[in-house]
């Protein structure tokens, strides 16, 4: 394993299914024999606030649920602005970022009081901080797989396909398979695969 512990942050907006993604990663990690600590910051998250999961994987030592500033190794951003927010606090020069390009507008932007920054600008800004940036249209890929709500599994697939985690596809597939049933399972597996293929190789 490259880092000990390996620090991953999954971030987005309430309702995007971040927490589920972090649960899938942690269950897969335990299945692969790792120790894991996940800290969820979601508050009243169904209702559109920022959501952030800290996921820490280790071969043998127990970790606390919060990653110290500047020590995230991987950031999976479900939303550009939230990715930016997390990077400002937790990025190091080596942080690898996987980012969904689909904005989700805060109320203040909808009302016109604030301006949501131009998506290309956000990308540029993220690249300035951490050159190792992968952008993917996770919401669009999820729509192709059957529902825009499956973007969380596309992102989980991308994380698995990035080769940055010390365990492979099979662990994820078996966790997703055991968490869902019927058509929801098929949808999530398909979304996972499309994210995986985007990043793999």
């Amino acid at each position: 394993m490259v880092k000990e512990p390996l620090n991953i942050i999954i971030t987005g907006v309430g309702g995007q299914g971040n927490v589920l993604a972090s649960q899938v990663v942690s269950a897969a990690a335990v299945q692969a024999g790792y120790r894991v600590a996940v800290g969820e910051t979601f508050g009243v998250s169904q209702r559109g606030g920022s959501v952030m999961s800290h996921v820490r994987l280790s071969l043998n030592r127990p970790c606390g649920p919060l990653i110290p500033r500047g020590q995230a190794h991987v950031v999976a951003g479900f939303e550009p602005l939230e990715t930016m927010r997390v990077l400002l606090d937790y990025a190091s020069a080596e942080t690898v970022v996987i980012m969904n390009n689909r904005p989700n507008y805060p109320l203040g932007c909808l009302s016109g009081e604030h301006r949501y920054p131009d998506p290309e600008r956000v990308e540029e800004a993220v690249k300035k901080m951490t050159p190792r940036l992968h952008v993917l249209p996770a919401t669009e890929l999820a729509k192709e797989a059957g529902s825009p709500l499956a973007a969380n599994m596309v992102m989980t697939g991308a994380l698995a396909g990035s080769g940055l985690l010390p365990f492979g596809r099979e662990c994820f597939i078996s966790v997703i398979g055991s968490l869902f049933q019927g058509i929801v399972r098929d949808l999530n597996l398909q979304a996972f695969e499309s994210g995986f293929r985007r990043m793999d190789g």
Partner: peptide, 11 residues
Amino acid sequence: LLEDKMPDREL
């Protein structure tokens, strides 16, 4: 690059 603006995400 973002003109120093990071809009808050209100609930």
